Amino acid sequence: MARRNSLKDEWKFESELVSENQSIGIEAITLPASQPRRYFDPQKLQQLTESVRQHGILEPLLVRPTGKAGLFELVAGERRFRAAKQVGLTAVPVTIRELSDEDSLQLALVENLQREDLNPVEETEGVLQLLGLRLNIPPIDVPPLLYRMRNEAIGNTNQNVLINSEAQAVEKVFAELGTISWESFATTRLPLLRLPPEILEALRSGKLAYTKAQAVARIKDDQQRRQLLAKAISQDLSLAQIKTEIAKLKAAQEPAEVGDSSLKGQIDDVLRLAKRSQVWIDPKKQRRLEKLLAELKTLVADKE
Rank of each mutant, 00 (worst) to 15 (best):
A209R: 07
N151T: 01
K303L: 10
Q54N: 13
T49D: 07
A167S: 15
K12N: 12
V52D: 05
A217L: 03
L128I: 04
W182E: 02
L74N: 07
A256K: 03
V258W: 09
L113W: 01
L107K: 03
R38K: 14
L107A: 06
K8Y: 05
P255T: 07
T188E: 09
R53N: 07
A274P: 02
Q114I: 01
S184D: 02
Q47K: 11
A84S: 15
P65L: 07
P60W: 02
A247E: 15
R218T: 15
S34T: 15
L190Q: 11
L58R: 11
G88M: 07
R134Q: 06
D236E: 13
A274F: 09
G206K: 14
E166Y: 05
A91Q: 13
T298E: 09
K303H: 09
E245N: 11
F72W: 14
L190F: 10
I26M: 00
S15H: 08
V63F: 05
G56S: 11
N119F: 11
S104Y: 06
I180Q: 12
S261L: 02
R218K: 15
P197K: 09
E20A: 14
G132E: 04
K285L: 15
F40R: 15
I180A: 01
L45Y: 02
A252R: 08
S100L: 05
R38P: 00
Q241N: 10
A28F: 04
S104P: 01
V170Y: 06
R38D: 08
L289Y: 14
L105I: 05
R150M: 08
L162I: 13
P143F: 03
S261A: 12
S262P: 04
K284G: 04
H55A: 15
T90G: 10
A256F: 03
W182T: 01
I180G: 01
T49F: 05
I24W: 01
V75R: 05
L48C: 09
S19M: 10
A256Y: 01
V142E: 01
E176G: 02
Q129R: 00
R150C: 02
V258I: 14
L74E: 04
L203M: 07
L133K: 00
W182H: 09
L249S: 07
M1N: 10
E254M: 13
N21Y: 01
L239T: 04
A153G: 06
I154T: 12
P42F: 03
V142G: 06
Y210W: 08
V121Y: 01
K220H: 09
L130V: 10
I199P: 07
E152Q: 14
R226D: 00
G25T: 08
G265S: 12
L237M: 13
A251S: 10
I180W: 02
E123F: 05
E201L: 13
Q86K: 03
H55R: 14
R53P: 00
K291Q: 13
D268T: 10
Q223D: 11
Q46F: 05
G77E: 09
K250I: 15
S277A: 15
T124F: 00
R3S: 11
S100N: 04
K297R: 12
V87T: 08
T90S: 12
G155P: 02
W280Y: 12
S238T: 15
Q223T: 12
Q168Y: 04
A108N: 02
V121I: 13
S23I: 00
G259R: 11
L299A: 14
Y147N: 14
Q278E: 12
G67V: 14
K172D: 06
A69L: 12
A247D: 14
F81L: 06
A252C: 04
